[in-house]
Write a protein that binds this DNA or RNA. Structure first.
Lengths: 349, 349
DNA sequence: CTCGATTGGGAATACGTTTTCTCTAAACGA
DNA sequence: TCGTTTAGAGAAAACGTATTCCCAATCGAG
């Protein structure tokens, strides 16, 4: 390709090196470097003159040369098997936000659950000498499909399995469930059911614990153990139909759903069956997947897992680790947040 | 932090340099480099011995040192204002797939529609000397919220505004609409309506053109111009209610929706109103947003925009550009694909 | 036996920065 | 006036790799 194609109009030419700046300012490379990085001693006039020259030439330091000497790439890797992005994207946004202030960029590697792919991507990151690694998963009781060897850089985990000597950030599922059920109770619901995903998920078991705990603490009857199925609207719909088939006296007046899809399906079934939400039955979901929660009729009150905040904290912790600070190992469970819409009868904020 | 923490078990130590390999193999650095890169002349034994030594030491070339000398970072940037990830994530997956074979990684920069953020991210990529840039947007008639100066690297655009002298990849909206409507016609629908998003979107106007064209080509009556609203389920629901209010003779027996959310809302309204889908009214959507399309009752037949393929082609084209090959400027419109489910009465594949 | 060609391998340089050390000249105190 | 400090600036080494020469040894032909 003709390199003239990329010629810049004076400003912003990426080919300008510090040597050009030094020459144009009539100083040595060392002095130029010090002027631009606020290091060393020199008259304010010299410093300013060099900076002006650099700016007018559109000088941009070559990050790789800088990395080579400083042994820091100002780059971190985000390794995830969530190609769908349901969880990882909000995490990535929080992560970037926490890092961009420090000039750190993020390499994204999303791969299907295939160990070969994962290994290639990991190797690529190691060669690029990322300063740290964030491992993001889809569930808190599974790691990535590859064995991570002892890595030459700090690692933090988000929404992923994490042993006690590692550092991880996950939503506090039990507390989230407590919050959800307490909201139903505050809305004067007495018979609160729980319809949720497969019990093989740790998150399901934790949320069920929260449900039980809240119900018992309020002295309410504990209905039959959680209804467990898959994470789909279809399962929610079937559960809603079962609810309709119950004698009205036995019927729950509140349902805490394991995710928003189930909640949506359940509400649709109840509506089709002639029950009113929230008047006859209040429903609260989990995830705050806005495209779903906002479109539900009525809009769904649900629990936000704070994925963005998870990413943000993971980022700043990783920066601490890179800087050599000590960080206590272990899993941090971050609080979830209730998002009130209209499916429980409470006033939306 | 204690650096022993990161000590590796012999293998996989990132601190091993080519100098260590050379010393261990009893050769010079130059020879080691040539052995590992299949360059220069030497006996096969020497070459193999050096490679074995490198492997046993867990040598990994430092990508930044390599980049410095080769003037190639083996890195490309993905700049997007789609923080929600609806469009960008599939694009990113295709992109990565096309690049990983060549050892190229991707920097992800997602930012809200804020010029300051955008500029910071762009600058960061320029400093990191990415070999090329992919600009991904949310709609084909808007660019990013920043003025891109003449950049010192090739750029391709995906799902974003693109002038004739630039290189871009977008879905072929008109052709997709044609496919959708022709499918309705193949399902023996005669009165085909179009319910879609705001006409300020070029995509909306193109899809409307495709609708008209297909209807007229089949000699069917052209119903009142497209119903235009916002991209929401709520609008789809209201449109469905209006349909129910029409005299049955005037009522469309097929609806082509501008996206899956509208289709979902519309189907829900029809179902609540007692009309059967697909028997009374067939519906086809646009986007193939699986979480929505699969959960619709009945599952939604829709148009897949091939975002993944868009990303893949953008990636390989960018690699060509980086390699200096000539690429004809202009916008490529990639074919969409019909995904048959159950909302039109045709047999799902 | 000599000359040229070929083969295997190494020395040196470059890539663009940062940083340490050294040097000069000016300022200052006695 | 002489030594001592200090301000200002530059020379050089380092980071890890790829590459361009160059050199020594071996070999074959005449």
């Amino acid at each position: 390709m003709d390199s003239d194609l990329y010629e810049m109009p004076g400003m912003e030419n990426a080919r300008v090196t510090i040597k050009d700046v030094a020459r144009a300012a009539g100083v040595s490379i060392a002095t130029a470097s010090k002027a631009l990085n606020d290091r060393g001693r020199m008259t304010v006039e010299t410093r300013q003159r060099i900076r002006d020259v650099a700016a007018s030439l559109g000088f941009m330091p070559n990050a790789m040369a800088r990395a080579l000497v400083s042994q820091r790439s100002f780059t971190i890797g985000l390794l995830t098997n969530d190609t769908y992005g349901r969880f990882t994207l909000p995490v990535a946004a929080g992560l970037s936000a926490a890092l961009i202030d420090c000039g750190v960029s993020v390499f994204l590697c999303a791969f299907e659950d295939d160990a070969g792919q994962a290994a290639i991507n990991l190797r690529s990151m190691l060669e690029k000498r990322v300063d740290g690694l964030v491992i993001a998963g889809k569930r808190i009781d599974r790691g990535l499909p590859i064995e991570l060897p002892r890595l030459p850089m700090p690692v933090v985990r988000v929404n992923s399995l994490c042993s006690d000597d590692q550092i991880g950030f996950v939503p506090d599922d039990r507390e989230g469930a407590l919050t959800a059920v307490n909201h139903l109770i505050a809305c004067r619901r007495r018979r609160i059911a729980h319809v949720t995903g497969p019990t093989s998920f740790l998150a399901v078991r934790l949320r069920a614990e929260g449900w039980e705990q809240a119900v018992q603490a309020a002295g309410l009857p504990l209905l039959d153990g959680p209804q467990s199925g898959d994470w789909s609207e279809a399962f929610g719909f079937r559960s809603g139909q079962q609810l309709l088939a119950m004698p009205p006296a036995e019927r729950p007046d509140g349902v805490f759903c394991g995710n928003d899809q189930i909640a949506r399906g359940l509400i649709d079934a109840l509506t089709v069956g002639g029950l009113r939400v929230p008047d006859d039955v209040s429903v609260v979901g989990f995830d705050n997947w806005e495209v779903l929660a906002k479109a539900t009729r009525p809009p769904l009150t649900t629990i936000d897992m704070g994925l963005n905040e998870l990413g943000r904290q993971a980022g700043s912790t990783l920066l601490d680790l890179v800087a050599g600070k000590h960080v206590e190992p272990g899993v941090r469970r971050l609080a979830c947040r209730l998002v009130v819409r209209s499916s429980c009868g409470a006033q939306p904020l």
